[in-house]
């Protein structure tokens, strides 16, 4: 049982890295392109939120 939790921990870590990385990256690119400053934080928050949602979908639903 602890082994399964161990696997979950690493998967969660992966999501929490790639969420902000991807959507933050999109935001950063938009900021560069449109010469603005607010897409990066929006992207980071969006990515973090989506990553948490994914974590909940994968590990929270089974209870």
């Amino acid at each position: 049982m602890s082994r399964i939790n161990e696997g979950a921990a690493w998967t969660i870590l992966g999501y929490l890295i790639s969420g902000p990385l991807f959507w933050g990256g999109i935001g950063w690119a938009l900021d560069k392109w449109l010469v603005t400053g607010y897409f990066l934080p929006i992207g980071l928050l969006l990515g973090m939120g989506a990553a948490l949602y994914l974590v909940w979908l994968r590990f929270g639903r089974e209870g």
């Binding site: 998967t11 870590l13 992966g14 999501y15 890295i17 790639s18 969420g19 990385l21 991807f22 959507w23 969006l46 990515g47 989506a50 990553a51 949602y53 994914l54 979908l57 994968r58 639903r61």
Partner: peptide, 28 residues
Amino acid sequence: FMPGVPKPVYILLTPIEIATYLIVRPLT
């Protein structure tokens, strides 16, 4: 495609799954 999610949400989630499986996992 994570099951049990309304379709528009995939726009938000699928890139994260791709990034996790193709980039973040081998990199980390």
